[in-house]
Design a protein around this nucleic acid. Structure first.
Length: 585
RNA sequence: GUGCCCGUAGCUCAAUCGGAUAGAGCACCAGCCUUCUAAGCUGGGGGUUACAGGUUCGAUUCCUGUCGGGCACGCCA
């Protein structure tokens, strides 16, 4: 059987219902055919509420409309029967043959089963993580990484041409603070002790970087540290409290004192942190097509050009020595500074240039995955796009709530600056990549995630990923004990598969491509995780109720074909989530 | 204070742009291994979907208000 003989049933039945509807309504009526999978077997396999939608405009009751629609419904070889039920639902029943043939679709489709053409090859960019390279990734970044990577996989499977991008904030003040922090720690190693500002980077990795530089260069970068405190009020030496101004003075002094060597420190810490980040993500199964440098937007003049564009369109003005963008023209609460009094561009300025650059690259859709704490930033970015006469609807911003950590039943503190945080690397080492990846996408991304570290570390069966992986391992075990090749199962007679458990499993396999499409449409990879749990659950029930390796060869082959197909779909789904499917557990 | 998000079983969460009797997991109770992996299965109890109104054939979903929680309100990124 070829794929054109075997349709997507949702699409197939939607088409039939549309034809039926056209026969009883006027041509200009807008139709929205909604076909949903039923929850109860007695309601058939697919259900449609079209009759209820049309009842009002036709001045007939919904059940009567449903009757008319069914009467006008073209015949289909895949349709066992159609019924009117409840308030006017049209319930469609698939033939057993249609379900049974799905096994061949899966076994022949292999890794491609579930992939579809919903995306029509459109170019879509997913930008995610984009963490400041100022320290290790923590578990909050981990969620964005897991969500973004899974979403990108899902979109790709659904037929989009996906580009995964990491925006490297290598130009900002935070990098200067990290550079300063590292130099201060380096000076300490040379027995020069300058009070370490409270709001500088406290993490031990800063000392580690200082150590590396010290080991390679001893006191080469000591210079004149006494000048570092120039311009600082005397009392800062007496107190640990430090302000932004304090840091800015230290940074400016450090640049002056170090001269060319400042660039060495800056480059060293950037390279070190970015490399660490990249390795961390790679080990987490998260890879990017593009690492986009913020600094490059300054180096190639993009920021200046973008500011000039806004200036030409009269969206910029000067006040209090700074340059402001009129974001209130586009619904923002207040106008925003793009160039500070000291001449420095803000993060927002380069971000406008970055988004202009994204649009110039010709994506049909751009998705930014941000931590939910950045939601207030959305209106100004969308406003900037409008100011540049770009279509804001092409930019989708998916907010990911931070994971809230619990340790010993209490919230664990998480702050990059204070150094009190659980890193993504620690999490991976403790619970494993698979559990972490699955755990992260078990919840809808815009919901808070309570991450119980003790539970996640427990390596017990409470980790839901084991349940799905175990189903896969069980199929592998059975097939290993059978002395045949899976390819032989393509000729199995699946019409023997008629018990309710088997029919439900067959329907579940049919659902997979629809689930992938839905996950892509809704930017919701968690649907894949839920689907996999359900498929695994139905398989485990089947496993416990039915013996596969039986004497009757046709029956055995039919059952083995089914579980081989289940295994394939488990693999395909787990792959979308970046989770391994081990043969043995 | 203003804006955005959220409130579903004891706990953590689903519920396909408004659909049929609101579903899972964990926890709890009772069962199932001389048979392909018990990291499994079967059965059971558990709900006024925060609260009060509104919209309609139908509301966990949309609107208004109240209460409770989170986040954001920088010339940080």
């Amino acid at each position: 059987m070829t794929s054109c003989d075997y349709p997507n049933f949702k699409t197939h039945f939607s088409g039939l219902l549309e034809q039926a509807a056209r026969a009883i309504i006027s041509a200009d009526t807008v139709l929205r055919i909604e076909l949903t999978r039923t929850k109860q077997a007695s309601h058939g396999d697919y259900s449609c509420n079209l009759a209820m939608q049309l009842a009002k405009s036709l001045h007939k009751n919904p059940r009567e409309v449903a009757g008319l629609l069914i009467a006008a419904l073209p015949a289909s070889p895949h349709l066992e029967k159609v019924e009117v039920a409840g308030a006017g639902f049209i319930n469609l029943f698939l033939t057993h043959a249609a379900k049974q043939q799905c096994v061949y679709q899966v076994l022949q489709g292999k890794a491609a089963y579930g992939h579809g053409g919903f995306g029509q090859g459109k170019k879509i960019q997913v930008e995610f993580v984009s963490a400041n390279p100022t320290g290790p990734l923590h578990v909050g970044h981990g969620r964005g990484a897991a969500y973004g990577a899974s979403l990108a996989n899902v979109l790709s499977a659904a037929g989009f041409n996906v580009s995964r991008e990491f925006y490297v904030n290598d130009a900002g003040r935070q990098m200067d603070i990290l550079t300063l922090s590292t130099w201060l720690r380096y000076l300490e190693l040379n027995d020069i002790h300058i009070p370490f500002p409270q709001n500088a980077y406290q993490g031990s990795y800063v000392r580690t970087m200082a150590q590396l530089i010290f080991q390679a260069h001893t006191n080469r970068y000591v210079h004149q540290p006494a000048l570092l405190l120039d311009g600082l009020p005397a009392q800062v030496l007496e107190t640990v409290v430090s302000t932004d101004e304090h840091l800015d003075i230290l940074i400016a002094n450090a640049k002056k004192i170090l001269g060319q060597d400042y660039a060495y420190f800056h480059n060293f810490v950037l390279t070190e942190q970015l490399g660490d980040c990249r390795n961390d993500l790679m080990e987490f199964g998260v890879e990017f097509d593009v690492w986009f440098s913020e600094q490059s937007l300054y180096d190639n003049g993009a920021v200046a050009r973008t500011m000039q564009l806004l200036e030409d369109k009269k969206y910029l003005y000067e006040q209090d020595g700074a340059i402001w963008f009129r974001s209130t023209d586009f619904g923002d609460e207040k106008d925003r500074v793009v160039q500070r009094e000291n001449g420095q561009f803000t993060y927002f300025a380069s971000d406008i240039a970055y988004h202009l650059n994204k649009f110039e690259r010709g994506f049909d859709q751009v998705i930014n995955i941000w931590g939910a704490d950045h939601h207030g930033y959305i209106p100004r970015v969308k406003g900037a796009l409008q100011a540049l006469e770009l279509d804001p609807s092409k930019l989708e911003i998916a907010l990911v709530q931070f994971a809230v950590l619990y340790r010993d039943g209490k919230k664990a503190p998480m702050s990059t600056r204070s150094g009190e945080f659980v890193t993504l690397r620690e999490l991976r080492e403790e619970v494993g990549k698979d559990a972490a990846r699955f755990f992260y996408v078990m919840r809808k991304s815009d919901q808070h995630l309570d991450f119980d570290l003790d539970l996640a570390k427990s390596q017990s069966n409470e980790n839901p990923v084991y349940y799905v992986q175990y189903a896969h391992a069980r199929v592998c075990s059975v097939l290993a004990q059978w002395d045949g090749q899976v390819d032989e199962l393509n000729s199995a007679d699946t019409t023997i598969l008629t018990n309710p458990l088997e029919l439900a499993l067959l329907q579940k396999l049919i659902d997979f491509p629809d689930t992938v499409e839905m996950a892509a449409r809704e930017y919701s990879p968690h649907l894949i995780a839920f689907y996999l749990r359900e498929l695994a659950s139905e398989f485990h029930s089947y496993y416990n109720s039915t013996r596969f390796l039986v004497a009757e060869i046709p029956l055995q082959n039919a059952r083995l074909a089914l579980i081989a197909a289940i295994r394939q779909v488990l693999i395909n789904g787990l792959t979308l989530l970046g989770v391994n499917a081990p043969d043995k557990m």
